[in-house]
């Protein structure tokens, strides 16, 4: 199965929902673009979690282009697509490896966003490319978090560095990088404990981990990934802002996109914080991780809508 297929498969449910929604707006041959229509369109867009601002902008564009006219569905859909693409504008952004020595990837996020699973998927992907991987279990706070990552490490067959419960997470991160240097691993992925972005002390702890990593290898961590639950609403913006302030995030993994949640919050995040999406999680298995590409993301959202409208 190609990468694009996997991507589409993950978004299928989302697409189905959005597809029907948009089609519902158009009755019969053409549709008059009036205030009622625009309100409905606004509602549909809001339901994707993209936020009032982005949805408002998109509706505004449709209003100024088609206001008061009877329009064909594909024209409107094309305009929406174009608008969303421009809002989301970013190139595909895979992991950037360090020119030499181990590449250090730090993973952060709020509680329950899917950090540990995403790390397992990331590890699997890197192994597939023939990289050697060391995992650092720096979530020393949550009960059995270390065990959870250890089980994944065993499944993937990679080395894991752990510390005792409640020990300093920065020291575990330090040990993990030291181990990666020692065995000459290509990548070291450091897990951190989930924390709400408003918990000042815990965010400072995260900054400390970041600092400690930089002391061992200049430029480390090379990637700081924020794991975002696709069901997250507008709080995602606050998460992106605060985590970026604390540890200079380089990108997002959008997890749990295999549900009905549309993950539209990344549109708002791109607009307000500028953080790009690197990968999307589309299932529970270790290989269910796909590179995020804005073109197919938007295309997949509106897949088949245009072609279904043609036979009239």
């Amino acid at each position: 199965m190609g990468l694009l297929d996997k991507f589409r498969q993950g978004l299928k449910k989302t697409t189905n929902l959005l597809k029907t929604d948009i089609r519902d707006l158009f009755k019969g041959e053409g549709q008059l673009v009036d205030e009622e229509f625009l309100d409905q369109l606004f509602g549909r867009l809001i339901k994707s979690d993209m936020g009032v601002q982005a949805a408002g902008e998109t509706v505004e564009e449709i209003r100024s282009t088609y206001r008061g006219r009877v329009t064909q569905m594909e024209d409107v859909v094309a305009t929406i697509k174009a608008k969303l693409k421009s809002l989301l504008a970013q190139p595909a952004d895979p992991i950037r490896f360090a020119p030499s020595g181990p590449t250090v990837i730090m993973v952060a996020g709020v509680n329950g966003s899917g950090k540990t699973t995403s790390i397992a998927k990331l590890g699997q992907m890197l192994l597939g490319r023939g990289k050697t991987v060391v995992l650092g279990a720096a979530d020393t706070f949550r009960a059995a978090a270390v065990e959870q990552l250890t089980i994944w490490a065993n499944r993937l067959g990679v080395e894991i560095v752990t510390g005792p419960p409640r020990s300093d997470p920065a020291s575990v991160a330090h040990k993990a990088v030291a181990r990666a240097l020692e065995i000459g691993a290509d990548v070291c992925i450091v897990d951190t404990a989930g924390r709400l972005q408003t918990q000042q002390n815990l965010m400072q702890e995260l900054t400390k981990i970041h600092r400690v990593l930089g002391k061992q290898i200049p430029d480390a961590p090379h990637e700081v990934i924020l794991v975002l639950d696709a069901t997250t609403g507008q709080n995602g913006i606050s998460q992106a802002k605060h985590f970026t302030e604390a540890v200079h995030c380089t990108g997002i993994i959008l997890a749990k996109l295999d549900g009905t949640a549309k993950g539209g919050i990344v549109v708002a995040i791109r607009g307000q914080v500028g953080l790009p999406v690197k990968y999307i999680g589309v299932g529970e298995k270790a290989e269910d991780l796909a590179l995020f590409e804005p073109e197919p993301f938007v295309e997949a959202l509106f897949e088949d809508v245009g072609s279904l409208a043609k036979p009239k």
Partner: peptide, 12 residues
Amino acid sequence: VDAMTGQDAVNS
């Protein structure tokens, strides 16, 4: 239910 859930909360 996670308090941070967006529009999808009603679906689930």
